[in-house]
């Protein structure tokens, strides 16, 4: 069933990482990404792996979930590996067959790249696993608020994001219902040639769009009825407040970043 698709993959358990301020968590993720991409040696990756493992343990998210987030990018991983193996030719030749030539440099780079991408995905998916989509948009709004100075519509953007997130499950449920209704009228949704299948989508997409527009209109009316006037002077139900654990987290992140910079410099020398 469509309902089983998890969008916005929030995994609700209670952990330190879950309780942290979402603004800080976004910053941590950014620092982590910088750390990974600034690093040029295998040691920085080891450092990154330690960091991810630590966060993973603190978050109480089962390792199975991390595997779930890697699975969809497996093709990209394979693609990167092949490209790197093929096109980087430095160091000793390890294996050769007609135009395919695998060199030590190529092998090293591709392993390095794969590890880096896996760490990137696992680390950043921890953010979405431990933060509910609504908190995430709140945090993005807060972090982007300086942009208001240059007349960037921060609140409007955030509102659009949270509305979109709010309606994903609703629309999924609606799609499910419409699909069942059309199946009951004998619509063949999962058989036939490609052209037929695309045609079979029409009886689902049209009612879905109609209802999406209807919902949008209803929501707009409801918001107007409650005198919604944008972000100006609006207060929040959930106030974001930084606490001790957030500053400790920030400190740990900075230490890791500093360590990786030191490793980088040492590696060059």
């Amino acid at each position: 069933m469509l309902k089983d698709i998890t969008l916005g993959q929030y995994f609700p358990v209670d952990s330190v990482l879950h309780r942290m301020d979402p603004r800080f968590k976004i910053i941590f993720t950014m620092l982590f990404i910088i750390m990974l991409f600034a690093g040029n040696s295998i040691w920085t990756l080891v450092l990154g792996a330690v960091f991810v493992l630590m966060a993973q343990l603190l978050s109480k998210i089962p390792l199975k979930m991390s595997w779930k987030s890697i699975k969809p990018i497996l093709p990209i991983l394979v693609f990167t590996a092949v490209l790197n193996l093929e096109f980087i030719s430095s160091g000793d030749v390890l294996w050769e067959w007609s135009f395919i030539k695998i060199t030590e440099g190529g092998l090293q780079t591709s392993v390095f790249m794969i590890c880096r991408i896996i760490l990137l995905i696992v680390g950043s998916s921890l953010l979405t696993y431990t933060t509910s989509p609504i908190l995430l948009t709140d945090a993005i709004e807060a972090l982007m608020s300086p942009l208001r100075k240059i007349k960037f519509p921060v609140h409007e953007m955030a509102m659009m994001m949270s509305i979109a997130l709010r309606f994903i499950p609703t629309l999924l449920e609606e799609t499910d219902k419409i699909m069942s209704a059309q199946k009951a009228r004998g619509a063949a949704l999962d058989s036939g040639k490609l052209t037929q299948r695309v045609k079979a989508l029409i009886p689902i997409l049209i009612p879905l769009f109609v209802s999406a527009f209807r919902r949008a209109e209803e929501l707009a009316t409801a918001m107007e009825c409650r005198c919604y006037r944008g972000g100006e002077g609006r207060t929040r139900l959930r106030q974001l407040r930084a606490e001790k654990r957030d500053y400790i987290g920030l400190f740990v992140c900075l230490v890791f970043l500093a360590a990786s910079i030191v490793l980088n410099v040492l590696h060059k020398v």
């Binding site: 419409i178 069942s180 009951a184 009228r185 619509a187 029409i202 009886p203 049209i206 009612p207």
Partner: peptide, 29 residues
């Protein structure tokens, strides 16, 4: 599919399943 033609099911608020250009075509679906 044959079963579905023999047992017709009308959902709650079935008006949200209409999609054709004309009522005739929709009933004919």
């Amino acid at each position: 599919r044959e079963v579905r033609f023999r047992v017709g099911l009308v959902f709650q608020y079935p008006e949200y399943q209409l999609f054709e250009e004309t009522v005739f075509k929709d009933i004919a679906f």
